[in-house]
């Protein structure tokens, strides 16, 4: 665990940079984490992040298959939005824990 200043606020994060408390999240934090990952956040990105947060709050296991069926973006589109880690990077930017699913 570590403290990290993101968007002017001190936030608790894991060693891999995932937010410890998903309530600490804000769009500003998402934008700053995105730019660290070399991503410029668009409305589409935010839609995915909010979908992930909603499902995480509902206690569902997240998979790229589920996101692909959400109606927001297909799987190919998801890879384009979050290159090199469609579920890992999106989860990090959404302020939710590192995904535990293999799909």
């Amino acid at each position: 665990m570590a403290e990290k200043v993101i968007a002017g606020k001190s936030i608790e994060v894991t060693d891999e940079g995932y937010l410890v408390n998903m309530e600490d999240w804000s769009r500003e934090i998402a934008a700053e984490l995105a730019s660290e990952a070399g991503i410029e956040l668009t409305g589409k990105h935010l839609e995915v992040l909010e979908y992930l947060r909603e499902k995480q709050s509902a206690g569902e296991t997240l998979t790229i298959r589920k996101v692909g069926k959400s109606g927001i973006v297909d799987i190919k589109g998801l890879y384009k939005l979050f290159p090199g880690g469609p579920l890992k990077i999106s989860s990090k930017l959404a302020g939710i824990p590192k995904p535990t699913s293999c799909v």
Binding site: T61, T63, I64, R65, K66, G68, D74, I75, K76, Y79, P86, S101, V103
Partner: peptide, 18 residues
Amino acid sequence: RLDIPPVDEFLDMITAGG
């Protein structure tokens, strides 16, 4: 139940990721 897709859809997913 674990959200593991049928083979054809799995191939869609893998190729969607390159």
